[in-house]
Amino acid sequence: MAQSIVEAPIRIDTSRKIIHVDMDAFYASIEERENPAYKTQPLVIAHDPRQTGGRGVVTTANYVARQFGVHSAMPSQKALEMCPQAVFKTPNFPLYREVSAQIHQIFHEYTDMIEPIAFDEAYLDVTDNKKQLHSAVQLAHELQREIWRKTHLTCSTGISYNKFIAKLASDYRKPAGVTIVLPQDAEAFLLREPIEKFRGVGKKTVPKMHDLGIMTGQELYEQKELDLIKNFGKLGYILYRRVRGSDDRPVEYLRERKSIGKERTFGPFLQSTTEVNTHLKALAKMVAESMQGHQRHGKTLVLKLRYGDFVTITKRRTFTEFLPNDAIQFDQYAEEIFEDVVDEHFDSGIRLLGITMTGLAPLAFENITLPLYPNDN
């Protein structure tokens, strides 16, 4: 295959052995383990829309339900319409968290270089591992067997020299699959992947990609770097490298997030409280989802706003206990802070809004309120 002209140096480090572990339908599989009758029924992990007035979204679904088109992040009401016979099970996050901790203990039997992504997935750098195994494939198989032996749950693993390819590979043969992509096979593997599989290419980006004739990694590879940057900004710069097999991000096993937040710049500027509140709701939802995905909760909510005249205000509110990762609460507190700090600069409009949570701790660390006196209830 003819190589395109590379406009910027690309570095590819093939020295590492990285495994991406992705538990198969994690929450649903735990529920099936607890109640084997669910294995033959379409099981949806979500609040039953018939009891919530149609509200709620699907957390995950077992493979029986997926055959009906049910998938995570789908509105629960739509899942019910697609599969009227589905069993809806309210998520049991304390149990899922407990099982996740058990699985991470198993990871530590092989390596301490672990980067958790969510309850059900993590990156492991096994270049140098505790079992002294040279073969990452052998290690992945042993890891799967150990997880099954101790939890009766299956996982899929992707193995490669970087995180991007390892994550793509773990999704290649689900469930219970092991996929390895060697450096010499990376180009062929990436070029045939649909563009939707590339991390960062979401619902809003896919139509633009298709409009440009980019359907697979092959068409992405043929794009010039400057054109990708022009059309997609920073994402274009990243994708130009990813499709060439470059991703030097390390497995961040020592990372400790100090804050999680989202902010957005507006043009034209926001001119009314109604507009501000609408966007605060959207930001609060994104922050709540990100906090849940990183398995963190926090005690301090920070609101940031920048007026049209560039005057910037940052105001925080700290609570005695950890806040639940609830978008409605985040939005409520953000709106209250906004009402307290908004001033005459609002006449120039608002060009930026942001919500950040700090004072973070792992979700496994719970609030415990002890009674002051023996007879307190």
Rank of each mutant, 00 (worst) to 15 (best):
V6P: 04
I10G: 00
S15P: 07
K17H: 13
V21Q: 02
F26H: 07
F26P: 09
Y27M: 09
I30W: 03
I30G: 06
E32P: 03
P36Y: 08
Q41N: 10
L43G: 01
A46C: 08
R50N: 12
V57G: 10
A61I: 08
R66W: 04
Q67T: 12
V70R: 01
N92P: 09
Y96M: 06
H104Y: 14
F107K: 06
H108A: 13
D112C: 08
E115C: 00
F119T: 10
E121W: 01
A122N: 08
D128H: 13
K131A: 15
A136S: 07
A136E: 02
Q138R: 13
A140N: 01
L143K: 03
I147P: 06
T151W: 03
H152Q: 15
T154K: 06
S156W: 01
D171M: 07
P175K: 04
G177D: 01
V181W: 00
D185C: 00
D185I: 00
D185N: 00
E187V: 09
F189A: 02
L191S: 09
R192A: 11
P194K: 02
I195L: 01
V201A: 01
K203V: 11
V206H: 01
H210K: 13
G213W: 00
M215I: 10
E219A: 10
L220K: 06
K224R: 15
D227E: 12
L228G: 01
I229E: 11
F232N: 04
R242C: 11
R249Q: 15
E252C: 07
E252R: 15
R255M: 10
I260W: 04
E263T: 11
E263I: 09
R264L: 11
F266N: 02
P268W: 00
V276D: 03
L280A: 02
L283K: 02
V287I: 02
H294Y: 15
R296W: 08
H297F: 09
K304F: 09
D309I: 05
F310D: 06
F310T: 09
T312K: 09
I313Q: 06
K315H: 14
R317L: 13
R317I: 11
T320N: 13
E321W: 11
F322E: 09
L323E: 03
P324C: 05
I328G: 10
F330T: 02
Y333W: 13
A334Y: 03
E336D: 15
D340V: 12
H345R: 05
F346N: 09
F346M: 12
S348I: 07
G349D: 06
L353K: 08
L360W: 05
A361Y: 08
L372E: 14
